[in-house]
Every structure is written in structure tokens, then in C-alpha cells.
């Protein structure tokens, strides 16, 4: 792991006050300590006698160590460096008894958290990056959709895209209906029509743990309807998709997301990303971005 530098320390209150996942609980055996970084600060976490904990280790320019707030939900251990709200954003589907919830993998990626969010929101890359899975030529058109901000969260609705293999449960192509949601600045979710039950939706979230400005842990959270595939098969599908995105993310220049509206030329399909960039500007986010 790269050493953090003082310049990776975050001073944005809005970013420090969020909850961030540090580790899937299934990957934290009793008594083990996981060492990682959050917003430039070395932190560790674990579960001791059934109780999750997190603390800072000696940080550059700080030197102190101390207990951090902890929440255990959606299968992850979450913490915050600031003054977080009482709970993590709601994912009501998590409590539905017939769902399969799991961490499909926590990958370290050399990119900024906002770049990873924006890539997740982009349907336009499906046929080119996820060929044969989430898209295929000539079905490249992104139809118009709606974006609004509700209670501080971005919601993009009425999204649809033709997908040859939309999920591990898919048996053929389908016109997938999507809803995207950005429940906090560095977390992004999608709700997608399930191949096994058209009335219900699979929930997939990319929960970003910013290690530094330009390095994240991307926790892939799944909450799916699937009574056919093994955990290994379900994770495999999601990992193929994510691993196809990883080299694209790592080769974007600059690695931080430019917030100046003139920095990168958007097209109509980028409607959500335009709203996301504006939202970060309005929140006063400086972390992982090139400020306007």
C-alpha cells in the first residue's frame, strides 16, 4: 500500500462527516485487524468479542490515535472521521428475506472516488467496455431519462438499455430498466429490472472508501434476487464487470474529477454526470476533484 501524504488529508467537512465502509464483515474474522486508509488517514478496524471497532493509527501531521465511530450494516463495518449522521443511508431491500446480499469484492483502484461514481452512472460505455454483458453494438443509443435531486440524493429514473447478459441469472438479452441513485457523495447505487422477476429490482451499489485523492477501495455491494447461482458465480459476474472498468478508470486523465463545467465536453447521455458534478460543486467538495 502506498504511504499517505499530508496532502491526502481531507478538510472538506461534508466529506469527513460521511460514513464509509472499511471492510466487509465476512472478511473480518474475530480477532483479526485490518489496516487501511481513509481520506489520507491510516486507520484500522476489526471485530473483537463480537464487537466491531475502528480507530486511527498515527497519521501524518496528527500523531494521535483514537477510537472512531462505528456502524455495522449491510454486511460492512462503516466509520467516519467527522460528525456523521445517526445512520447510513437506507437500503430497504436489504431486509427482504429472499434476497442474496454480499460483498462481491473490495478492489483498490488508482482513481478518485468521484471518477468511480461517474463511471458507474454512465450507460454510454456499456457496449464498448462490457461487450456481450451489459451492452452490445449496434445497441449503443442512450435514450433520454430524468434526473432530480430528492432530499439531497441524486436520482436518475426512466433509464433503459439493451443488455445481452444483464446478470448472472440472465438467459438472453433484455431491455434493462435502471434507476440510479447517489445517496452520498462517494456512494452510488443502481436498481435494475431483475431477469427472474420483472416486478422487482436487483440492487447494486459501489461504495467507495477514498484512501487518498487518487486512490479508492471500491466495495461492490450486491442485494439480488437469485436462487440459482452460487455465491462464487454471483461474485464472478460482478467481478468481470468491475475488472473491465478498472483499467478504464485508472487511465483517465486527470484522475480527479474536473468540476469546471467547461473542462470536459458532455453529451446528452451524460445528464446524470452533469448533475453530479454540479452537486459536488454546490456541496463545496474539494476532495478527489479539480475544483472549478
Amino acid at each position: 500500500m502506498e504511504q499517505s501524504t499530508e496532502s491526502d488529508i481531507c478538510t472538506d467537512p461534508v466529506i469527513r462527516d460521511q460514513w464509509y465502509p472499511l471492510r466487509a464483515l465476512a472478511e473480518l474474522p474475530e480477532g483479526a485487524t485490518h489496516h487501511t486508509r481513509l481520506l489520507g488517514v491510516p486507520v484500522s478496524c476489526g471485530v473483537t468479542r463480537g464487537r466491531p471497532w475502528a480507530r486511527t493509527e498515527s497519521a501524518p501531521g496528527d500523531g494521535g490515535t483514537g477510537a472512531l465511530p462505528v456502524i455495522d450494516t449491510y454486511g460492512y463495518l462503516w466509520t467516519s472521521l467527522g460528525e456523521p449522521p445517526p445512520g447510513v443511508f437506507e437500503i430497504p431491500e436489504y431486509t427482504e428475506p429472499d434476497r442474496r446480499s454480499m460483498n462481491a469484492g473490495s478492489f483498490i483502484v488508482a482513481t478518485s472516488a468521484p471518477r468511480a461514481v461517474e463511471n458507474f452512472l454512465d450507460m454510454g460505455h456499456f457496449p464498448y467496455v462490457h461487450t456481450g454483458y451489459l451492452g452490445i453494438e449496434p445497441h449503443t443509443e442512450v435514450n433520454p431519462y430524468d434526473v432530480e435531486i430528492i432530499d439531497g440524493e441524486i436520482w436518475a429514473t426512466r433509464c433503459e438499455f439493451f443488455q445481452p447478459m444483464a446478470a448472472a441469472t440472465a438467459t438472453g438479452g433484455q431491455m434493462s430498466k435502471y434507476t440510479y441513485r447517489v445517496p452520498s457523495p462517494f456512494a452510488v447505487m443502481l436498481y435494475k429490472s431483475s431477469p427472474v422477476d420483472p416486478e422487482r429490482r436487483d440492487v447494486i451499489a459501489l461504495l467507495l472508501q477514498p484512501m487518498g485523492h487518487e486512490q479508492v477501495v471500491a466495495h461492490n455491494f450486491l442485494c439480488l434476487l437469485d436462487d440459482v447461482n452460487s455465491d462464487a458465480e454471483i461474485k464472478r459476474f460482478q467481478q468481470i464487470i468491475f475488472a473491465q472498468d478498472k483499467p478504464i478508470l485508472e487511465n483517465q486523465i486527470p484522475r480527479r474529477l474536473p468540476l469546471d463545467p467547461r473542462a470536459e465536453t458532455p453529451i446528452r447521455a451524460d445528464h446524470t454526470s452533469i448533475v453530479y458534478r454540479r452537486h459536488l460543486r454546490e456541496l463545496g467538495v474539494n476532495y478527489g476533484v479539480v475544483p472549478a
Binding site: 472478511e27 469484492g105 473490495s106 462464487a232 458465480e233 461474485k235
Partner: peptide, 10 residues
């Protein structure tokens, strides 16, 4: 035969 090598350490 998929093996959950990561993150499951199968």
C-alpha cells in the same frame, strides 16, 4: 467451476 478466491478465500 467458479472458486470464490476473492474475497471469499474459498
Amino acid at each position: 467451476v467458479p472458486v470464490d478466491f476473492f474475497p471469499g478465500w474459498e
